[in-house]
Amino acid sequence: MATPQVDAAYEQKNVHEVYQQIAQHFSATRYKPWPIVERFLQDLAPGSVGLDVGCGNGKNLMVNRDVFIVASDRSENLARIALQHQPHSTVVADILDLPHRGASFDFAISIAVVHHLSTPARRIQAVAEMLRTIKPGSEMHEGGKILIYAWALEQKNSRRGWDKGDEQDRMVPWVRKGDQPQTFHRYYHLYEEGELERDIDNAGGRVLEAGYEKDNWWAIATPKTADV
């Protein structure tokens, strides 16, 4: 039976160290926010304050000039690239131990991040940790919202070609281009239809909207409140 320390060490080797190595090239291939992410961020009220958990190179930080985002990434090399996007802030942090107070943010996004956690318990814990930071709704106010994206198992038209029934836990190669191309392998858990919504429910969230975009499952959720 794996322990949290073993799981963390596995992710350290098969996710975090790889991103440190491929940060520059990875960033150069990621420049455009996905449409649902763009819409979610554009719909926020001016003055909203939120989080981008696993911000990568920070490509989603410039969508809405009227909000303030504290971005974080597990990879210092990626966080350093994201730092250039003013007026936002970037720190190095882990999605399972976010350095933020509870119930204090209007929104949080986590795009293509939770699929790197290697057990169901850790994936649920990651969602719960994001929900913890969000202002819950009340009779007077709508609660804050989170947007989560995770890679889908059902992507038979992509170049990977995986589909329903295939193995969900995989090592996926990344070929770093250059004079001497080098291949790295990252761990992924591919989400099956409905799985992200189930995880959110188990983490104490209420799903407001969910769907499929560009080989990913996505969901928008808010913290459950006692009266719901």
């Binding site: 304050v49 303030f68 504290v70 007026p87 802030s89 720190v91 942090a93 882990d94 131990d97 976010l98 350095p99 933020h100 107070r101 509870g102 204090s104 943010f105």
Partner: peptide, 17 residues
């Protein structure tokens, strides 16, 4: 790190939050 950042972060240790 900007001064504003300090307003939106705290200790990452669970018991401290």
């Amino acid at each position: 790190m900007k001064v504003i950042t300090a307003n939106f972060v705290t200790c990452a240790v669970k018991e401290c939050k």
